[in-house]
């Protein structure tokens, strides 16, 4: 039986990890390879790197990072942030990344999803979506946002994920902008609605604060995987402890 996945997310700027600097045992806490190895040892099922570099030679920096991680870490990893063209994506995949996430670029140009799926295969195209609850109508619903939750794109989240799937997305990385950073728990209603709307795997993100939150996203929410950042980085929760908890609560983990 397929195991549910636990995915730590690392923010990188200029090739250095800018969150997760409190791993005391690391030789170089900001080194992505060191951190990736550490998470690998802890039992992470995959890793996601979110690149926030704002520099003209950004692509070279990211490609170099990907190459270094791929040389030493033998679990799957995904790279996202600022990828806009088929060429950007090709260089990341050729350097050794397994998947890329597309967010704003896919909203601006949905055919990028199908172009990439045809060129590289759906299995490496993860469409990331930032969703926020609508408060304008009495009916439960979510809008798609960009720019860190500041800009409403005016697209319904369930319509967008369905379209992304039909265009060839292999997975959905679903972040609740209402819950992101709150530690109040994943938006289980959103996760469930999206999991039911698509047939491809859904990775829940945004809001993890304690063990029970992961459990409900993977069970009631129907997610295939859960992603978290700060909770893992600052050593508040180890992946081993999380897997132990899930395993004792009828969730299959590796």
């Amino acid at each position: 039986m397929l195991a549910k996945r636990i995915i730590p997310c690392l923010d990188v700027d200029n090739g250095r990890v800018v969150k997760g600097v409190r791993f005391v045992s690391l030789v170089d806490a900001g080194d992505p390879v060191e951190q990736a190895k550490r998470y690998d040892l802890e039992g992470a099922d995959e890793l996601t790197f979110l690149d926030i570099t704002a520099s003209s030679d950004r692509r070279d920096i990211v490609v170099n990072l990907v190459r270094r991680v791929a040389d030493e870490v033998f679990i799957p990893f995904t790279v996202g942030g600022g990828l806009r063209t088929v060429d950007d994506i090709r260089s990341i995949l050729r350097a050794g990344a397994d998947k890329v996430t597309l967010n704003t670029a896919a909203l601006d140009n949905p055919s990028l999803i199908s172009e990439c799926a045809e060129t590289f295969g759906s299995q490496c195209i993860v469409v990331a979506i930032d969703a926020k609850r609508r408060h304008t109508s009495s009916e439960l619903g979510w809008d798609v946002y960009t720019h860190g939750g500041r800009k409403n794109v005016g697209v319904d989240a369930l319509e967008w994920v369905t379209r992304a799937q039909n265009l060839g997305a292999g997975e959905i990385l679903l972040t609740s902008m209402d819950r992101d950073g709150t530690r109040a728990g994943y938006d289980v209603q959103l996760t469930k609605a999206v999991s039911e709307a698509v047939k491809i795997p859904v990775i829940a993100s945004g809001g993890a604060g304690k063990l029970e939150h992961f459990h409900e996203a993977l069970t009631s929410g129907g997610a295939s995987a859960v992603l978290a950042a700060s909770l893992f980085h600052f050593g508040e929760l180890s992946i081993a402890a999380l897997k132990d908890y899930l395993g004792h609560h009828d969730v299959r983990v590796r």
Binding site: L2, A3, K4, K199, I200, S224, A225
Partner: peptide, 13 residues
């Protein structure tokens, strides 16, 4: 089968 989440992505035994 179509009633499964496809692709299968992840760790299986």
């Amino acid at each position: 089968n179509d009633d499964l989440v496809v692709p299968q992505v992840g760790w299986n035994s």
